Amino acid sequence: MKVIIIEDEKPSARRLQRMLDKLNVPVDQMLHSVEESIEWFQNNVHPDLIFLDIQLSDGLSFEIFDTIKIKSSIIFTTAFDEYALQAFKLNSIDYLLKPIDDEELEVAVNKYKELKPKAKNVQLNFDDIKKLLSNSPVEREYKKRFTTKIGQHLKMISVDEIECFYSENKGTYAHTIEGRDYLLDTTLEKLEEELSPKMFFRISRKYYININAIKDIISYTNSRLQLKLNNYKEQEVIVARERVKDFKLWLE
């Protein structure tokens, strides 16, 4: 089975790839824009299955199908609201709401395998889908706050108050502008889909950084970068070497 992912947010694409690897579904290719996807489809054998995000950096993914006739089966990955999801139900398309859940992904993959002989005969009416989506906002909703338990109380923390997220001893913590650390019931992997990529960037396996918290950036050993944050001073905050290029692009 040949599988590709079309997703403009690279952290989300990598997370989905890791989830599929656990299901023994290898991903052959990851594409990140309408333009890149069209060029790839023009020069490669089309896959059996596409995991397709709707809104890409350079337009709606449906524009790909306006140019290229694609017979691959599709599972949409989307952050659209329930009303917009009528489009997928009407067209017999499977879909996964972001952030994608492991169990729901497994169910969708198994459903595709069961329906594989029929899947290629499904005719998708993208015009109808676009009409329904036009009645729904295309902007994604990202997480705006977190809750954490302190004794018998629940505290709400706005993402604007968080300088960074970090993992330690199998726990995930939020460090706030007030210099406090709070244990959260989540993981850095889940945060990659829940937080705005314009505001937060995962610089390493340990740290997820708020762009507004960066006070200084210093060249470090082995082509890495060291970040100085406004308040977090517990440990050195290092941008992993393989993330430096994307980090610099993110800053721009």
Rank of each mutant, 00 (worst) to 15 (best):
E178D: 15
L124Y: 12
M199N: 06
N231V: 09
L49E: 09
L249K: 14
D102M: 13
V159A: 01
V237W: 01
N121G: 01
Y95K: 05
E141G: 11
S73D: 13
V138Y: 10
I100N: 00
D8H: 05
Y232V: 04
R18D: 06
T176S: 12
Y208W: 07
N43R: 14
N212F: 13
F201E: 06
I238Q: 12
L188K: 09
F51I: 09
V107Q: 13
G59I: 06
A79H: 14
F76M: 11
N135G: 15
L154M: 10
F80A: 06
A84V: 01
K143G: 10
N43A: 07
A87Y: 07
I177C: 10
L191N: 03
S196W: 11
I6E: 06
Y166L: 10
K89W: 15
D53Q: 06
V122S: 00
D66Y: 07
F247L: 00
L188N: 03
H32P: 03
E252Q: 15
N24S: 13
C164T: 05
P47C: 07
I157D: 01
V45W: 00
S167E: 01
K113E: 11
E192T: 15
E141V: 14
I5C: 13
G171Y: 10
V138A: 09
E36A: 10
C164G: 08
L225P: 10
I4N: 08
A87R: 09
I203R: 04
E7M: 08
S196P: 04
L60G: 02
F41P: 00
D28L: 09
T186D: 07
D216N: 13
G59E: 05
E168N: 10
I157E: 05
D181S: 14
K10G: 01
L154D: 03
F200H: 03
N222S: 14
Y166P: 02
K131A: 12
V3E: 08
Q29V: 04
H32I: 05
R224I: 09
E139K: 08
Y142R: 05
E35D: 07
K22A: 09
L85K: 00
F62H: 06
F62D: 10
M30S: 08
A119S: 13
I38N: 02
I209E: 06
T147G: 01
T221Y: 14
P137N: 13
K149T: 14
L60A: 00
L90M: 14
M199H: 06
Q42G: 09
V239T: 07
E163V: 15
I5K: 08
L132H: 13
A13R: 04
E9W: 00
M1Q: 13
S92W: 11
F51N: 07
I54F: 07
T78P: 11
E192L: 08
A84Q: 00
A13D: 02
F165A: 07
K116D: 02
V159L: 11
L52E: 00
M199G: 05
A84P: 04
A108L: 06
E104I: 03
F126C: 03
S219F: 08
L52A: 02
I54L: 11
K190G: 08
L227C: 13
D58T: 09
Q17L: 02
K2I: 03
V45A: 12
E103T: 11
S204M: 03
S167D: 03
K71D: 14
V159W: 08
L60T: 03
Y207G: 01
L49G: 11
D8N: 14
E189S: 09
N222K: 15
Y83Q: 12
